[in-house]
């Protein structure tokens, strides 16, 4: 693995650093905060931020992008970012912990976020407003639950689909009510 030239650090910024930085950017840290945490200046960070995605594009084995997802999920444990957090409310903090520890809660909010977009809302902003969870933290939870959810689907496909359908129905109802119903609600068979 270490012989892979695509994994060589860019300006001293490793893939672990880069992945954690992306997660933290999604949580509201500025580029200046990120650069400072990595011990570089903004122009150096911006080059790394441009070149790491290029490495992913060049790698047809998807190894780099897989590692990126893995490291992204471990952003909270990255030593360079451990003391850096964007300001969130106490409730937001509790929800953020919960989405990383409660799989069903994550699954439900993932559906809610998608359905919000289907009703013309900015889903990421809706989650932030309603639960105080940043997009970065949401995506960290996604990376961490991904493998388990795939196992769940393999083990009980119908059960998974039923849960998803129930979440969908719940949020479709919620957002439809807020906009005064769906456009074709009055059309019946």
């Amino acid at each position: 693995m270490s012989d892979n030239p695509l994994l060589e650090p860019i300006h001293g910024i490793t893939l672990e650093d880069y992945s954690a930085a992306c997660a933290k950017m999604g949580s509201g840290l500025s580029e200046a905060d990120i650069a400072k945490a990595l011990g570089v200046e903004v122009p150096v960070w911006q080059e790394a931020n441009l070149l790491w995605p290029e490495r992913m594009k060049q790698d047809e084995t998807f190894h780099i992008v897989t590692l990126f997802g893995q490291y992204f999920g471990q952003a909270d444990q990255h030593p360079k970012f451990s003391n850096l957090k964007a300001a969130v409310s106490a409730e937001g903090g509790a929800n953020t912990d919960r989405i990383k520890s409660d799989k069903r809660f994550y699954e439900e909010l993932e559906v809610a976020r998608q359905v919000a977009y289907e009703y013309g809302l900015d889903g990421a902003q809706w989650i932030a407003d309603k639960y105080g969870i940043t997009l970065g933290d949401f995506q960290i939870a996604a990376s961490n639950w991904n493998a388990q959810i795939h196992q769940d689907i393999a083990a009980d496909f119908d059960g998974y689909n039923e849960r998803q359908a129930a979440y969908r129905a719940k949020y479709q109802q919620l957002f439809a009510d807020a906009q005064g119903g769906n456009v074709a609600d009055d059309i019946e068979f």
């Binding site: 650090p9 860019i10 300006h11 990595l38 200046e41 150096v44 080059e47």
Partner: peptide, 13 residues
């Protein structure tokens, strides 16, 4: 020390 890293061949740097 402005930056405690080793610069590599990037875009402009």
């Amino acid at each position: 020390v402005f930056m405690d890293i080793k610069l590599t061949d990037g875009v402009n740097i």
